[in-house]
């Protein structure tokens, strides 16, 4: 899966969780840019991403996670590691 495909799939995940079709995602977006992205939604995103991309995040991954760009890199590395 290349980066563009990951972004496209992530948009679906976000649209479902926030029930909005108009969320713009790019590498620098973080929780403060999306209304409703609180710690609860954060977990929901992680769980949905694990399910959607068939990946498992590590503890150190979650500690370092700040932006959508971080998330995309995590998905890529996780997928490669398999």
């Amino acid at each position: 899966m290349d980066e563009a495909q990951i972004y496209a799939a992530l948009r679906d995940v976000f649209a479902d969780i926030f029930d909005r079709d108009d969320i713009v995602l790019n590498a620098s977006i973080s929780a403060k840019d999306v209304s409703g992205w609180d710690s609860f939604r954060h977990i929901e995103i992680l769980v949905a991403v694990e399910e959607r991309f068939r990946v498992r995040f590590r503890t150190r991954d979650l500690d370092a996670l700040r932006t959508v760009g971080d998330l995309v890199r995590l998905i890529q590395h996780n997928a490669l590691a398999k």
Binding site: S39, I43, E44, L46, V47, E50, E51, R56, F57, R58, T59, L62, D63
Partner: peptide, 15 residues
Amino acid sequence: NPVLWRHARQEVSPA
């Protein structure tokens, strides 16, 4: 999920 247990103290995995 031990990661989320450490991360958010959720004993029952959200999934």
